[in-house]
């Protein structure tokens, strides 16, 4: 009978990514609810020294798959190794982060394991010993609660920035074990030939704590400067609505909404965004929403915690000046 909770750690360049702590923390809560162990699977090359620390966040065991071919993520290598280990150990729950890597990996793994999967979940619970996952559908226009049937492990991914990270407990350590796996070179078909770094150094919208977003009300690409000034001051990433992207004012990667990125920052400031339903769907899980818009009847105000009715070209620069006073004091 399937036993235990497994989570997959995510590292890049040998550094553990924040999503890893989020899913270990959530995995700990699920393992406690089941009264079972939490195992974290860490893949990489010369990565073992990063393993013990994962115990601070709640891992009982860390299973390390160390191999030069696992240094950087590839679908082929990671899915092959993980499916082999999962089949050998038969965990009850397999949890990943819904990051770019986690979404790609979980999708392939669900096929390899022939199991159902719940993608990009915002809440988990254990009911009658089974995993119940809550996930937004239609980009958050509705929520589904799902469970699994004849499908082991029960597999899900968690939306970044939604799961609370446990306070690290340095007195707690994990048992670190070497994973035994085979990896056939013939299975490795794809190759990462280059990594183009985003030189702006800006945090991706899906991982940003704060977002300042501009829509049609920005009137043109040159006006985003005032949003960038505010964003730079508060450590935010600049986003955009679909109409701003479709107008060619901002790149596609900046789009927030149903056909863009679905985001959950702590603070979302919508400037000159009326609040089309497909946009609201993409940002409604933000913790604090601010709307700045000329039109007092704009639908965005129905979702906003704080609204300012006014011309963004006056309000945003003034807000930047006011915020500066708090940050500098």
């Amino acid at each position: 009978m399937a036993q235990g909770v497994w989570t997959i750690a995510e590292q890049r360049g040998g550094e553990i990514r924040k999503i890893t702590y989020e899913i270990i923390s959530e995995g700990r809560r699920l393992a406690d609810a089941l009264g079972q162990d939490l195992t974290v699977l860490l893949l990489g090359s010369n990565i073992k020294e990063k393993a013990a620390e994962l115990g601070n966040y709640g891992a009982d065991k860390v299973l390390v798959a160390d191999d030069p071919r696992l240094e950087a993520y590839t679908t082929d290598a990671y899915a092959s190794v993980i499916s082999e280990l999962v089949k050998a150990d038969d965990p009850a729950i397999l949890l990943l982060g819904a990051s770019a890597e986690g979404k790609d990996l979980s999708a392939r793994l669900s096929g390899k394991l022939g199991v159902g999967m719940a993608q990009d979940c915002t809440a988990f619970a254990v009911e009658d010993g089974n995993l119940v996952a809550t996930r937004p559908i239609y980009a958050g226009k509705a929520y589904a609660r799902v469970t699994f049937e004849n499908s082991w492990p029960q597999m899900a991914t968690a939306r970044p920035k939604v799961m609370d990270i446990n306070e690290p407990d340095t007195s707690r350590s994990a048992e670190v074990l070497d994973a035994a796996f085979s990896l056939d070179d013939g299975a490795l078909k794809t190759k990462v030939v280059d990594v183009l770094k985003d030189e702006s150094g800006k945090v991706d919208l899906t991982e940003a704590d704060k977002i300042v977003s501009g829509g049609r009300g920005m009137k043109g690409p040159e006006n985003y400067k005032i949003l960038e000034d505010l964003a730079d001051l508060i450590g935010a990433t600049v986003g955009a609505s679909r109409s701003a992207v479709d107008a060619g004012w901002r790149p596609h990667s900046d789009q927030v909404g149903q056909t863009g990125k679905v985001v959950s920052p702590g603070l979302y400031i919508a400037c000159g965004i009326s609040g089309a339903i497909q946009h609201l769907a993409g940002m409604s899980t933000s913790k604090v929403i601010v709307a700045i818009n000329k039109d007092a009847d704009a639908p965005i105000f129905q979702k906003a915690d704080y609204g300012v009715v006014g011309d963004l070209f006056d309000v945003v620069p003034a807000l930047t000046e006011e915020v500066k006073k708090y940050i500098e004091s």
């Binding site: 190759k191 990462v192 990594v195 183009l196 770094k197 945090v203 991982e207």
Partner: peptide, 9 residues
């Protein structure tokens, strides 16, 4: 992906 673009063959 977050913060970069992978070129894959």
């Amino acid at each position: 992906i977050e913060g970069s673009t992978l070129v894959i063959e």
